[in-house]
Nucleic acid binder design. Structure first.
Length: 310
RNA sequence: CGCGGGGUAGAGCAGUCUGGUAGCUCGUCGGGCUCAUAACCCGGAGGUCAUGGGUUCAAAUCCCUUCCCCGCAA
């Protein structure tokens, strides 16, 4: 089958790679255009573009694929199926009607739950114990199309979004291939989603990484996992921002009001009260410094336990 | 040229402004105390102060080069 692949970030790479490994004919790869990224704001291509160019594929970028230029490009090439994976642009019906086998989307949740652009992170933040990959027919709505295949995987208690992201990205490639093969031999029947059970979560705002110690220790722990590595959890102490990369719930009841420190020294690290239990900040990072064990950080810096995190 | 912080012992930091003996906390090693210890006491080892050049009687410190790490912002 001749495939046109639309994807942008890291998550999409294993899917594209799986297509190549399975000898699908990837006739074109479409990504978001280069943007100024990183320190220095240098123009940088997205992950999929870099990968695809390394593989010698035909790569195109459109600010809006739905505009005339993009539509005309798609109509000008010969292909059978379109695959989207974290592409980041909404397609029009006109575009969806172009390929004979339609358009397939790879989504990193068990739809209809966790629709939207950040399903992996939100599943962790909400304390889910399992998630998965869903392939579906792409519709004009966001993640609303009929389900083709679904595979489940557990979310481990201390797993971070980054770790889960890597696993799901890999699974996404596998499920995508099975889905395409199923479509070819007509062994898959699309099933409509139960829209009443749908949940939708937005893209993260920078503030979403801020820890609220008025929540429970479990909720704090899930937030820290869910926003690691991006955008990263943080607390403020006075005017200073402290990023928190790893936490551990301590099975001791909180001793004082949420946000206050139980202790902070080079033996025990930093332990903070939440609304129920205590939580240890295991791996932290001060501005300008690299991330480090909390106990190590306390060797060269003293915090005052009378201060509280906000 | 988006803004900014940093590189000093195994770890985390101070010292740099104002040039003049390499410091602190932790770890580590040895000894002591103790029924015992992750606790306490005593002692030791461990540094080419990122890199290259310059100024100087003298540079971690002042000037310039290069490399690397990181926060914000995107």
């Amino acid at each position: 089958m001749k495939v046109v692949f639309l994807g942008t970030p890291d998550f999409a790479i294993p899917s594209l790679d799986a297509l190549l490994q399975a000898n699908f004919d990837v006739v074109a790869v479409i990504t978001q255009p280069d943007k100024p990224r990183g320190r220095g704001h240098k123009m940088t291509p997205c992950a999929v573009k870099k990968f695809a160019m390394d593989k010698g594929l035909d790569v195109h970028s459109f600010t809006r694929i739905r505009r005339k230029e993009g539509v005309e490009f798609l109509k000008s090439i010969d292909f059978d199926v379109m695959v989207t994976a974290a592409f980041g642009q909404i397609l029009t019906q006109e575009i969806l009607d172009i390929p004979k086998y339609g358009c397939i989307n790879v989504h990193a949740s068990l739809l209809p739950k966790y629709r939207g652009p950040a399903p992996i992170q939100w599943a962790i933040i909400k304390g889910e114990t399992e998630t998965g990959i869903t392939t579906m027919k792409t519709e004009r709505g966001v993640d609303t199309g009929d389900i083709l295949m679904q595979e489940v995987t557990p979310i481990y208690p201390d797993e971070t979004a980054g770790e889960l992201f890597d696993r799901l990205a890999g699974m996404g490639g596998d499920v995508l291939i099975k889905t395409l093969q199923g479509l070819e031999d007509a062994s898959i029947t699309p099933v409509a989603q139960d829209h009443d059970k749908a949940t939708h979560f937005p893209m993260f705002a920078k503030e979403d990484g801020k820890i609220d110690f008025n929540k429970t220790a479990a909720e704090v722990h899930n937030l820290v996992r869910g926003v690691n590595p991006w955008p990263g959890a943080y607390v403020t102490l006075g005017s200073e921002i402290l990023k928190v990369w790893k936490t551990e719930i301590i099975r001791e009841k909180a001793t004082r009001r949420p946000g206050t420190m139980v202790c902070c020294d080079s033996k025990n690290g930093v332990i903070v009260n939440t609304s129920d239990y205590q939580i240890a900040l295991r791996e932290i990072q001060f501005a300008g410094k690299r991330r480090m064990e909390a106990a190590a950080a306390m060797c060269g810096r003293e915090l005052n336990t009378s201060e509280a995190f906000e």
